[in-house]
């Protein structure tokens, strides 16, 4: 018997199938996607009880041979099938996107907007919960939707809290439903990648906390105009000047209004030095947080601030953009192995 056609006929198909299933995809090699489960299913407490009753009825039906008990048994089995059939469209074609604010600080809850859309053209989705895929250090409030009509979308504001500094990749969402009968929890995952940078938290510092970081070399003045306390000179008063700065004695002498000008205080330039030597993680994070808080403190008061760490620095500048730069830099700071001690200092000038 010639078996050649029998064997050779399916070969191209098998090759094609193997290629499609296990073939190398573009870019990174990854697990064959067909091996990913489409959804997870697990029994709820009620589901387990339901199955126990089902077994009991089955046992009774077998023992008695009573066909009406078989009918009840078939009904219970059909409810399981119906449950599976009905929960499936609830989780199908649901799309979720998230919008997070630009500034996200560690341990500070931020509001995020989730847009959940039912892309099905004919069926509504009932009673489902949307949760952020679990990421270490990310706490996201889940969203519950009772009903989402066909081709409709809903906007929900939820709270996200990031417990870890640095770049965080948000993977996607899980959609959970116990619809229709609550016997099974069906979970479907949808990948919606987003990357956010979690900045270190800043907090108001007490004068003592600011002073204890100040380097003992003190402040000095530069002979230039500025916002210091020493008088640099006098000039004619203009209507744009604050009346508090009028030098009344000199004005009396010259019979014209003169205003005081001040020397620039050298301490308005501050360099925050973070010696990011390895220490206990908690202490390290506290140090980073303190450096961030110091930067915020000085920038809020008009200082020009620079940041120096063992792995890099942010040059001197002032304003909110400088604070953003420093915080962004601090978000990436990692501990460095060495003999030194973890510390935060500020140097004036």
């Amino acid at each position: 018997m010639n078996l050649r056609p029998t064997i050779s006929a399916p070969l191209p198909w098998l090759t094609f199938l193997t290629g499609k299933t296990f073939g190398k995809s573009n870019g990174r090699r990854r697990r064959p996607s067909i091996l990913y489960p489409l959804r997870k299913l697990k029994f709820t407490k009620e589901g387990k009880r339901f199955i126990a009753v089902l077994f009991l009825i089955g046992l009774a039906a077998i023992n008695t041979g009573n066909n009406l008990l078989y009918l009840v048994l078939a009904m219970l089995l059909s409810l399981i099938i119906i449950s599976g059939l009905m929960s499936e469209p609830t989780l199908r074609k649901l799309k979720t996107t998230r919008r997070l604010p630009a500034d996200i600080h560690k341990d500070v809850p931020v509001p995020a907007r989730l847009v959940i859309e039912n892309k099905k053209r004919h069926l509504s989705s009932y009673s489902f919960k949307v949760e952020e895929l679990p990421i270490p250090g990310v706490e996201a409030q889940p969203v519950y939707v009772v009903k989402l009509d066909k081709s409709a979308k809903t906007n929900r504001t939820v709270r996200y809290t990031f417990r870890k500094r640095g770049p965080v990749k948000l993977d996607g969402f899980t959609f959970k439903t116990r619809f229709p009968f609550g016997m099974f929890l069906k979970v479907k995952t949808r990948r919606v990648g987003d990357e956010v940078l979690v900045l270190p938290r800043t907090r108001p510092l007490s004068p003592e906390e600011v002073d204890e970081c100040m380097h003992p070399c003190g402040t000095s003045s530069l002979h230039a105009r500025g916002n210091g306390t020493q008088i640099f000179g006098l000039r004619d008063y203009t209507t744009n000047d604050d009346a508090r700065y009028i030098h009344w004695k000199a004005s009396a002498r010259t019979l014209g209004l003169l205003r005081k000008e001040f020397e620039r205080d050298a301490a308005s330039n501050v360099t925050i030095v973070l010696d990011n030597f390895r220490d206990e993680p908690l202490r390290f994070e506290e140090a980073v947080e303190k450096a961030a808080s110091l930067a915020s403190h000085y920038i809020d008061r008009g200082y020009r601030v620079a940041l120096k760490t063992l792995t890099g620095e942010v040059p001197l500048a002032s304003g909110r953009s400088q604070l953003a730069r420093i915080l962004r830099f601090l978000a990436y700071v990692e501990p460095v192995d060495g003999d030194g001690r973890l510390s935060v200092r500020t140097l004036a000038g």
């Binding site: 077998i62 023992n63 009573n66 078939a74």
Partner: peptide
């Protein structure tokens, strides 16, 4: 579905406690 299952479930009833 119930009726379909009803006709398909094997009748292995032993009728021990048949009333």
């Amino acid at each position: 579905i119930t009726l379909a299952l009803f006709f398909m479930i094997p009748r292995i009833g032993i009728g021990v406690f048949k009333s």
